[in-house]
């Protein structure tokens, strides 16, 4: 999970020597153009944060059981969020202009299509769990012990990050290459993803310290970092740095 450099996180796409992909610039994801979506989108991080705060003592007490038992709740929150706020894949290409132009709320999505897309997105995002687990192991996660903990952490990250991404972008290969190369324009879905990875990365920092605190145990700090990073990234992506891209050089 690479770092984002706040100094160079600029939108300028001019004269990057090696980096710029040839694809035509993709646009950031817009929320569904209705008030409910805007409100839910604001309430969503608050709900997650509150939930995390309440479950934190249990997480420290018994990480695996808590992570497992909270999966259902987190997925319900996420399903609600994507269905009510985000345009499902295939129907998101008509962005801002329409919002400004007409007061048309329906977007041509049938009410059934969105839960169905959400369902398939949820199934597909499960496929990323082995990948995320392998990634953690490469970063030094314990491999012979605590494997269940690591897989559960991956599941939470998949729910937070992969699920909305799949819901919004489907299986668009070009788009996914953009996401994998962290070159997608910032929006609240991609921003959340970047923030989540960065948070989890930073979450590894306190683990080795000899403070003998209960919360230093695996994977409490990683999960905490991921959640905190997701909230911050989601808000920053949706507001502060919307539409910008991460430049490396």
């Amino acid at each position: 999970m690479p770092l984002i450099d706040p100094v160079t996180m600029s939108a300028t796409t001019k004269t990057t020597p090696a980096g710029t992909p040839p694809v035509k610039p993709s646009l950031p994801v817009e929320l569904l153009p209705n008030d409910l979506a805007r409100i839910i989108s604001q309430a969503h991080p608050v709900v997650l944060l509150a939930g995390f705060y309440i479950r934190f003592p249990a997480l420290v007490e018994n990480p695996a059981a808590t992570l497992l038992s909270s999966l259902l709740l987190v997925s319900l929150v996420q399903i609600g969020y994507v269905i009510l706020c985000l345009p499902p894949t295939g129907q998101s290409i008509k962005p801002a202009k329409k919002v400004i132009g007409a007061k048309k709320t329906n977007d041509g999505t049938t009410p059934v299509a969105r839960p169905l897309t959400a369902f398939f997105a949820l199934i597909m995002s499960l496929a990323s769990i082995p990948l995320l687990t392998a990634l953690q192991i490469l970063f030094g996660a314990p491999i012979s012990t605590h494997l269940l903990h690591t897989i559960l952490t991956s599941s939470h990250v998949a729910l937070l990050v992969m699920f909305p991404l799949v819901y919004v972008h489907g299986a668009d290969g070009k788009k996914w290459r953009e996401i994998a190369s962290f070159y997608s324009p910032m929006d609240e879905v991609f921003g959340g993803a970047v923030g989540c990875f960065l948070g989890a990365w930073l979450g590894a920092v306190p683990i080795p310290l000899d403070w003998d605190r209960e919360w230093q145990k695996w994977p409490v700090t990683i999960v905490t970092g991921a959640y905190a990073g997701y909230m911050v990234g989601k808000m920053a992506g949706g507001w502060l740095v919307k539409g910008r891209r991460i430049e490396l050089s």
Binding site: M1, P22, A204
Partner: peptide, 30 residues
């Protein structure tokens, strides 16, 4: 003392960080 004791793990963490970052960067190649 903790980071000094666990220096090897820290270095592995840096190596992976660079490798993942360069993989991400390589995906941007034309």
């Amino acid at each position: 003392n903790s980071y000094t004791i666990w220096e090897d793990s820290t270095l592995m963490f840096f190596i992976t960080t660079f490798g993942i970052a360069s993989a991400v960067s390589s995906l941007r190649l034309e």
